[in-house]
Design a protein around this nucleic acid. Structure first.
Lengths: 190, 190
DNA sequence: ACACAATGAATGAATATTCATTCTTTAAGA
DNA sequence: TCTTAAAGAATGAATATTCATTCATTGTGT
């Protein structure tokens, strides 16, 4: 009956928005500049997204899904150390291959222009991790501390490693990643 | 309304800019809104600062000085563990009492609108920390790894702890701060 | 009286968003 | 199979707003 809104074009706009937001942040990115990056007309953005804020919200949700597809939490057939290894490696490699995606997610967990509904999605992250850590604690492998404390330290170390690599103060070799993993493990293990 | 430029007014503008930038970021903060927050006229900002970029640069340098006044690196009359304790405690307590200041510093180390000269100041941070860690390594107390790797992990853990406290997932009790300190130490110690 | 700080309205450029108009696709009717 | 009209996607110029910056004027301490 009519030309159909293509999912492909929607993704092209989301990916373009990610690149522009990455460079200049939310307020520094104009809709026309995102349209240009996506090679569509300015108005087309408004066919696919209600406004700039909705675009940022949908981008966040889109990236969160990509994140979840990459970052593995393992299962309880593994030893605690193996599960930790699985999470660490997948998280770090995601950060290396999807820097803009991870930076956007981290920067926007608490951004004021994300809607309540989107913020709720941010909490699911915490839930996944908390369950993961709870398992390791119950298995007696990890310190019996507040899950949030363990979580903050663990995520802090992963992001700390990624930052020094992103800023080219450290080579992203498997050896360096493994050394950092062992340090992180020693921080949280019993 | 004196005909003499007052340092006090300059600081009032810097502090106002910090609050507004904290809320909305660089591109999201207008000069008129900063003027309003500082309770001066728009034009007055331009008496004290060449333009918006210069304001951000001077704010960064101003905050870096405050940071340095608070965060203590100890000296080599202390044991390695004592030195680490000193740094950890002063860093975390700075983050608790000066959240906006620390967030601005962390967010802007690599911001594109900071001038080369200002970026050089950012490197002095790394130098201070590197020397600190080098000492602990030479004393045989800390793993003999890349100083940047140690640095990234350590700063990551401190910021990770602060984030969960800032977002009210953990109480900022001395007990929690001490537990995190011990975890951080176990990550880097031999 | 003078020097210069302080002001805030004025300026022009940039921005988010709208909308009248022009395609493009689809499928009903012949 | 061919024609054609409805549906709605795509467009980009137009609009209203906001922004960084300027400057003519006013205020104030020396």
């Amino acid at each position: 009956m009519s030309p159909v809104k293509s999912e492909e074009k929607r993704f092209r706009i989301l990916e373009a928005a990610l690149r522009v937001f990455s460079d200049k942040g939310y307020y520094g990115s104009s809709i026309p500049s995102i349209a240009k990056e996506a090679e569509v007309a300015t108005g087309t953005i408004y066919v696919y997204f209600k406004d700039k804020q909705a675009l940022a919200n949908e981008l966040y949700l889109y990236l969160r899904d990509i994140f979840r597809q990459h970052v593995k939490l393992g299962d309880d057939r593994m030893t605690p150390r193996e599960r930790f290894h699985t999470l660490w490696q997948s998280y770090i490699h995601f950060g290396l291959s999807h820097r803009m995606e991870l930076e956007f997610i981290e920067d926007h967990h608490h951004a004021p222009y994300l809607e309540k509904e989107t913020q709720k999605a941010a909490f699911e992250f915490l839930n996944d991790y908390s369950k993961f850590l709870e398992n390791l604690v119950k298995a007696g492998a990890v310190k019996n501390e507040s899950l949030f404390l363990l979580l903050g330290m663990m995520e802090g170390m992963a992001l700390g490693l990624l930052h020094i690599i992103w800023h080219e103060h450290l080579e992203p070799t498997e050896e360096n990643i493994a050394k950092a993993e062992q340090m992180a493990w020693e921080a949280i293990r019993i």
